[in-house]
Design a protein around this nucleic acid. Structure first.
Lengths: 193, 193
DNA sequence: AGGGCCATGTAACCTGTTACATGATTGA
DNA sequence: TCAATCATGTAACAGGTTACATGGCCCT
């Protein structure tokens, strides 16, 4: 049910096409939640039949026409409802193929295992610096521009509040990336004793 | 594709019924990978048609009959193949509803948000001590007992190697739990300024 | 008497992935 | 000239969730 809320949440900032929702995903919540384009199109079609969003075709001279979706009042209520319903407890996500391989690693060729750990470490080391708050202005920009294109819409508040929470999510990735790096190095060290 | 390998991996230690695979999940890889009973039954049926496991009905006087699955040679090859194929890079799992809510928390009632963070902290504090290596002997026991029931099977090696990697996975949960706790407390502190 | 455990499954549904199809514009 | 970007989708498949069905045993 969460792709739905991610989409509604982004549309609350600005009317967007399916394609540009995907773009916004890529520079924002992509680390938190991913979706393929085909899935986004499907979800948007569904949301429209349920009356949570409405769409309008927009001609663009050179580039292909696009279908811009706007959040309806009903859609906004659904989104806020999701955010403000009585808080549920969320366990940590539980699907990690890499860890599953470690669990069964007694059957793994030792050299291969070490290489896999080294690759894993490398992956985090390259991935970690990509997670930084630097993308927040970029995101703010895109949303502001999308809003200008929408006539008669008062700019929504992408302000200090937003920036704070986006910073929170970035911080979480940094901390868990650090912890994971530490762990992987520890494992490798023990294997190399 | 990973539920499949989790099942094959457990069956490599001992022949098990669908129901007891679920039990073993619960005290072992449940933090790494979860599955519903119905999914396990479906997967086992599929694995049997593919010849990776074979089954045998076992009468039990008082309790209902059970269908015990054994790994075939082909199944074992498939499992080892998965472990030893050229290492792929795994990104971190990317579906975290809680973080998604934080991302959009600017729209959240502040009291509710604080309560949600507090619940989250509490959840980790209660969850963290449950993740400890103490379950390893229990797991070893269950597998050993299942093996005794299987006639003519030489006990597989649930030994020091196994214990090491299980310890590794436990350690990872502790480290990331610690990092997540730190993060959540940080967020709450900033909100309470 | 009622709930929980043991033990099996089926069916419908929802969500995510992969592959295919189309076609103009832009930059190297 | 070739690949990437913009822009829309459909179809098939794979994997995960929820609900339903059955029935005996054991414990309180």
């Amino acid at each position: 049910m969460s792709l739905r809320h991610a989409v509604l949440g982004l549309l609350d900032y600005a009317p967007l096409s399916g394609y540009s929702i995907k773009k916004v995903f890529e520079i924002s919540i992509n680390h938190i939640w991913t979706a393929k384009l085909s899935q986004i199109y499907r979800e948007l079609a569904l949301l429209e039949t349920e009356g949570l969003v409405s769409s309008k075709m927009v001609r663009q001279g050179k580039r292909p026409d696009k279908k811009v979706y706007t959040l309806t009042a009903k859609g906004r209520r659904a989104f806020l409802g999701w955010l403000n319903e009585f808080p549920v407890a969320f366990g940590p996500p539980r699907r990690d193929e890499f860890l599953l391989r470690i669990f069964f690693a007694a059957h793994m060729n030792e050299k291969l295992l070490k290489r896999e750990l080294e690759n894993f470490i490398l992956m985090i080391e390259t991935y970690r610096p990509l997670i930084h708050a630097g993308k927040i202005p970029e995101l703010t920009d895109i949303l502001a521009r999308a809003n200008q294109e929408a006539p008669g819409r008062k700019a929504p508040t992408v302000d200090a509040q937003e920036a704070r929470f986006w910073r929170f999510t970035v911080r979480r990735f940094q901390l868990t990336a650090d912890a994971t790096l530490l762990w992987a190095r520890e494992c490798l060290a023990e294997l190399e004793e």
